[in-house]
Design a protein around this nucleic acid. Structure first.
Lengths: 138, 138
DNA sequence: CTTGACCCTATAGCGACTATAGGGTGTATA
DNA sequence: TATACACCCTATAGTCGCTATAGGGTCAAG
């Protein structure tokens, strides 16, 4: 591969993204199709590397691929208002916040259930009992 | 459906589980195959309802289907030691704990990113910038 | 000239459902 | 009796974000 072009393996190493994942991003319209070498290898420009880095960072922050797609589109129009960016980021933060709360109340219940078990056999197990509070017909 | 047998719709309403999900549980070995009516409708016993309730409670607590399967097997052998139950429950709690921590640090970053944005256009947007820190080639 | 690292496409699998297509059953009412 | 309608059936494909596999082609070094 020439000095100015990068192979898919180069992008993979540079961003810590699996090769298959890069092809997956291309197929799903997140990464534009690069040129090809004579041997039909993908030949990326530095711009592709930037874009892939962007995608990875956004994914690391938990944005969905749809959100990443939207962020990429917005970031391409540099004169556009960034209000839409803010909306996406805040929606995602709210979602994360909600998940944290859900998991915290879940953990509270799990803690209670686990702590209540001081038994030896399943017939007396408080964990099992908490799952099947009605009389055990099965 | 006779007075002692329940239709799939009955189980659905009683447990708040979609009909398709009940069939899915059956196909995946969580719920035993019920008898059938003359018209080939599933005819459930009360024991099925108990089992489905168990599954739903465990799922609500975030146990995976594999974990639920294991818990069901354990709960069927009522004379068995409940140590294995404890192991599954604690493993799941630890997992939930880890997820909470991950999401909390994620939220911290998202908060910082969102708070840092006081701009009007994408070119100056701190959110976009935090995603693409290198010079924008694309 | 062969080895081995790398690349290609196409397709199937994961988990836990959900949705759809294309039918059959059972009951209440006109 | 006809028909409308709620309910049930099976089989298959779709969701999300990859990951893995099969079955090949390319390219540089030894």
């Amino acid at each position: 591969m020439s000095s100015t072009h990068l192979s898919i393996g180069d992008l993979s190493r540079a961003t810590g993204t699996k090769v298959e994942t890069i092809r997956f991003y291309e197929k799903n319209g997140l990464l534009p199709q690069p040129g090809r070498t004579q041997g039909n290898y993908r030949a990326y420009e530095p711009a592709h590397l930037n874009r892939l880095s962007f995608i990875r960072r956004a994914r690391d922050l938990g944005f969905s691929l749809d959100q990443v797609r939207a962020l990429l589109t917005l970031s391409d129009d540099r004169s556009h208002s960034c209000a839409a960016v803010d909306v996406i980021a805040r929606a995602h933060r709210d979602e994360v916040e909600r998940k944290i709360k859900d998991l915290q109340s879940l953990k509270t219940v799990l803690d209670q259930v686990i702590e209540s078990c001081h038994c030896n056999i399943v017939a007396d197990c408080a964990i099992i009992e908490s799952l099947a509070p009605a009389s055990q017909g099965s």
